[in-house]
């Protein structure tokens, strides 16, 4: 009898724990879906009056007169993200290859916590560093050198700050990627007479390609959504950027700068919600594309 009770309560406890785990799992899945739904619901007001395409490709942003063209913001976001990725990619790749293939073991041991610490620095600090160092450098040196009179608050400043922010993040993933490639593969390549560099080029990069794509895909999502550090250095001028040292106004900055203010303007909050939705969807698409490439690569190699 006693034994039965114990068993029952253990089974019950097991079920209860199982139940909570399922609830938590469901939360994780449902939350983003409801967020997307909420954003869509809020922005549908604006979408009723304008088509999505016309909003996305319209260049006019005049909330007072009811014109909400997202094109300048989207383009700014794309420029900042792409430039950041371009700066970060070679640094991340070469560093991770050096750390995992060439460096002595203690170097990696020292670098691991260093990279983690870098990844944990609050983004506002990167923003400050951007204002204090990058912006003056572009305004006082790079701009004049290129023969342009600029403030320094620019796409380039945003991209540099962003690149430095995503480097530790991408680097961590890349190190894992290269570490997970079995040593035997390296040895196989070396033993047919390949040099270290040939092995890296023909074997490791290829074997690690899905992981590399995933790392940069995630880095890109992060860069695209990063708000405060970019906002601080990018200039926030509503126009289509004409060059890297010109100011821009990326989507996250638009939302952060304006939400809560000027809400008396009709449709303004709806427009901001739509930009949030665009951000959400774009990040989702980045992730889907990187997953797709991963699957393709897995099948081929």
């Amino acid at each position: 009898m006693r034994k039965m009770q114990v068993r029952l309560s253990r089974a019950m406890r097991n079920n209860i724990h199982g139940f909570w785990m399922v609830i938590c799992l469901a939360l994780v899945i449902i939350l983003p879906v409801t967020m997307a739904a909420g954003l869509y619901w809020k922005s549908s007001v604006l979408l009723h009056e304008n088509s999505l395409l016309s909003l996305v490709f319209s260049k006019e942003w005049k909330p007072i007169s009811g014109q909400f063209g997202f094109y300048p913001f989207i383009i700014s976001s794309v420029w900042v993200t792409m430039a950041a990725l371009l700066f970060a990619a070679p640094i991340c790749l070469l560093t991770s290859i050096h750390l995992t293939q060439y460096a002595k073991r203690w170097v990696l041991k020292v670098m691991h916590p260093v990279i983690d610490i870098l990844a944990g620095i609050p983004s506002v600090i990167f923003g400050l560093w951007g204002i204090l160092v990058v912006v003056p450098f572009i305004g006082n040196y790079l701009g004049p050198w290129l023969g342009k009179q600029v403030s320094g608050y620019s796409i380039l400043a945003g991209a540099i700050v962003l690149a430095i922010m995503i480097i530790p993040f991408v680097l961590n993933i890349l190190i894992e990627v290269f570490k997970n490639i079995p040593d035997e593969l390296t040895e196989a390549s070396l033993s047919v007479g390949a040099t270290r560099w040939q092995t890296v080029k023909f074997v490791l990069l290829k074997k690690g390609m899905p992981g590399i794509v995933a790392a940069f895909g995630l880095g890109m999502s992060r860069a695209f959504g990063e708000t405060i550090a970019v906002l601080m250095v990018v200039g926030n001028v509503t126009r289509i950027p004409t060059g890297l040292i010109q100011p821009g106004y990326p989507l996250p900055a638009l939302i952060a700068n304006n939400y809560g203010e000027m809400m008396s303007i009709p449709l303004y909050d709806s427009a901001l919600m739509l930009s949030a939705l665009i951000l959400f969807v774009v990040v989702l698409i980045f992730n889907l594309i990187s997953r797709y490439i991963i699957i393709q690569c897995d099948e081929k190699c």
Partner: peptide
Amino acid sequence: RKMMGLLAQRPYPLP
């Protein structure tokens, strides 16, 4: 190394 072919415990074909 080229003078010696190596065969490992498990096959590791190149990608």
